[in-house]
Amino acid sequence: MKRPQALTDEQVESYNRDGYLSLRGVLSSEEAESYRKLIVRETPRLGYPPKLKYPASGKYTISGNAIAEPGFASIAEHPTVVDAVEDLLGEPAHLTAYVAYLRSSGDKGSGAHSDYKRWRPVGSSMNWLFTIIPLTDFNDDYGPLLVSPGSHLLSDVIDREARIWDVPRPEAKQLAEFIDPELKAGDVLLMHGHTWHKAPPGTTSEDRCGFFNKYCGVSAPPAAGYYPYTRVALDSMSDPYRRLIPFQSEKPLQTTRLLLEDGDNGDSRFLVLKNPSGRLQLPGGDGWEEMEDVGWDVGARVGSVQELVNQQAGAELSWASYVADLDEDEGQCRYYGYVDPSFDPSTVTAEQAEWLSMDELISSLGESDPICQVASEWKKPDVVRGKGKAVHQRKQQFE
C-alpha cells in the first residue's frame, strides 16, 4: 500500500523550481548534539583521509560501510528524511553515499560546484539528491552552505526519450546569485544532484559537523556502479529500511565485463567472444580501481572495462553504463552496457567475435546464463541510465 505524500505539493514545486528544499527542526537539539558528539569522538578512529590527524585543519569524513559503526545508521533511515527523499525522487530510494563529516578549525571550505560526477558511484545517477543535515548552525561563525537557486536546470536532460540519458555541460556564468538558506543544527536541506553550491570557511575555533547522505531512485542506478556495501552495513539498518542499501553479495568486486549492443530496436545484437575452450563470454576480465581522485567512493570499474574491451575487441568506448553485479567464480562481476547509434561494429577486430540477438543468446546459453540475465536487465524500458566515465576522463566528463 502506497503511503500518503509526506511533502506538500507546494514543497515539491519549490524543490523542482529552486533545486533545494529546507525542512526545519527535523532533529531536536538533543539529537543533533548527540550526533555531533558521536562524529567528534569517532573522527580520530574512522576519519578519512588517513593522512589527516585530528584536530589538524581539514575536512574529515566517516563514510560508506562505517554506517555499521554503533550510532551511525539511524540518520540514514530517519523516517522524515526518507519520506521526503522519496517524494522528491518520485520512487523508492537507494542510499548511494553515507557520509558524516567534520571540518576542523582552519579548514578552507569549498568553492562553487555541483556534484554530478560521471566517474563516481555517488554522483552518476540521473535521479539523485543530497540530504544535508547540519549538526552545528551553518552560519558565518561555522561557515554557511550557499546554494544557487535554479542552477540544477542548467543540466537538464537533453532527450528524455533516449535510451541513455545525457546532460549538457553547465555554464557557470549563467548561475543565479548564491543565497544562504540559513541552516540551523537539526534542519535538513534536500538538494538536487545538479544544484550548484559552495561552503565558505567559518571563523570559529569549533568544528563544523553534519551529514551529507545521497540517495538515488531505484530505477536510476549510478552510471559508474553502486558503492559496494557489506552485509554488516546492511544489517545495521532496521528491517523497514534495509531496502535502502543496494546490497548484492559478500563477495568482492573482482571482474568486470561489457555488454556491447549494436542497434537499438528489435534487431539489436550483442557482442560475445569465444574463450579458448569455446565458451561464449562478454569482453572483460579482472577489474581494478582507478586510485587517483577516488577517496572513499570506491566501486567504479569504467576505466578497467574500457581498457579490457579495447584490448580484447579493438573497440574504443568513451563511456559505459552500469547494469548489474553477478557472482562469478570467487568474486562478483560488475557488468556495464553500451549502445550508441553512431557505433560502427566493424571497429571490432577480435577474431573470435560473434554478434548474437537476444533469441540467439537464449538459444545458445539458456535464460539463466549471466549474459542473458544482464542483457535482459539492460533492455528493461523503465530503467533510466546515464553515461559513466573513467576517473582519468573526469576533466572531460561532458565530452
Rank of each mutant, 00 (worst) to 15 (best):
residue 115 D to C: 01
residue 98 Y to A: 14
residue 307 E to K: 12
residue 313 A to P: 04
residue 71 G to S: 07
residue 204 T to M: 07
residue 113 H to K: 00
residue 46 L to Y: 14
residue 258 L to F: 12
residue 364 S to H: 10
residue 199 A to I: 13
residue 231 R to N: 08
residue 315 A to Y: 05
residue 149 P to R: 02
residue 399 E to P: 07
residue 345 P to T: 00
residue 381 P to Y: 02
residue 123 G to P: 06
residue 234 L to Y: 07
residue 313 A to D: 11
residue 183 L to G: 06
residue 177 E to Y: 00
residue 84 A to N: 08
residue 229 Y to F: 13
residue 215 Y to E: 00
residue 83 D to P: 03
residue 54 Y to F: 15
residue 219 S to F: 05
residue 56 A to M: 13
residue 196 W to R: 00
residue 395 K to R: 14
residue 199 A to E: 11
residue 150 G to W: 00
residue 244 L to S: 11
residue 266 G to S: 05
residue 290 E to W: 09
residue 41 R to K: 12
residue 175 L to Q: 04
residue 115 D to L: 01
residue 165 W to R: 12
residue 6 A to M: 03
residue 369 D to P: 04
residue 259 L to V: 15
residue 199 A to S: 15
residue 200 P to H: 08
residue 226 Y to D: 03
residue 269 R to S: 13
residue 151 S to K: 04
residue 256 T to D: 11
residue 112 A to Q: 05
residue 74 S to L: 11
residue 32 A to S: 14
residue 282 L to R: 05
residue 315 A to Q: 06
residue 335 Y to R: 07
residue 159 D to S: 02
residue 66 A to D: 15
residue 221 P to E: 10
residue 25 G to Y: 09
residue 139 N to D: 15
residue 233 A to D: 02
residue 280 L to R: 08
residue 380 K to M: 12
residue 279 R to A: 15
residue 47 G to M: 11
residue 346 S to I: 01
residue 60 Y to G: 07
residue 98 Y to G: 02
residue 107 D to Y: 07
residue 137 D to R: 00
residue 129 L to R: 02
residue 74 S to M: 05
residue 353 A to I: 08
residue 288 W to H: 10
residue 51 K to G: 13
residue 329 D to S: 14
residue 24 R to I: 02
residue 208 R to D: 05
residue 354 E to R: 15
residue 246 P to Q: 00
residue 39 I to N: 10
residue 181 P to M: 04
residue 239 D to G: 02
residue 288 W to P: 00
residue 311 Q to H: 11
residue 271 L to A: 13
residue 237 M to R: 08
residue 220 A to I: 11
residue 93 A to P: 11
residue 176 A to G: 15
residue 221 P to M: 11
residue 96 T to F: 01
residue 269 R to Y: 06
residue 387 K to N: 03
residue 25 G to P: 04
residue 92 P to Y: 08
residue 393 Q to E: 14
residue 7 L to E: 10
residue 324 A to I: 09
residue 2 K to S: 15
residue 275 N to R: 08
residue 275 N to F: 03
residue 228 P to Y: 05
residue 391 V to R: 14
residue 251 K to L: 15
residue 278 G to C: 05
residue 37 K to I: 00
residue 373 Q to R: 15
residue 294 V to L: 06
residue 336 Y to V: 04
residue 381 P to K: 03
residue 398 F to D: 09
residue 381 P to G: 07
residue 164 I to F: 10
residue 247 F to R: 02
residue 1 M to L: 15
residue 291 M to F: 12
residue 308 L to C: 11
residue 195 T to R: 06
residue 99 V to K: 10
residue 123 G to E: 02
residue 368 S to G: 10
residue 142 Y to P: 09
residue 182 E to R: 13
residue 369 D to G: 05
residue 191 M to V: 09
residue 4 P to Y: 01
residue 326 L to T: 12
residue 155 S to N: 03
residue 271 L to G: 13
residue 379 K to G: 12
residue 189 L to P: 01
residue 256 T to R: 06
residue 212 F to N: 06
residue 201 P to Q: 10
residue 372 C to K: 08
residue 40 V to M: 09
residue 131 T to M: 04
residue 235 D to E: 14
residue 300 A to H: 01
residue 88 L to F: 00
residue 289 E to K: 11
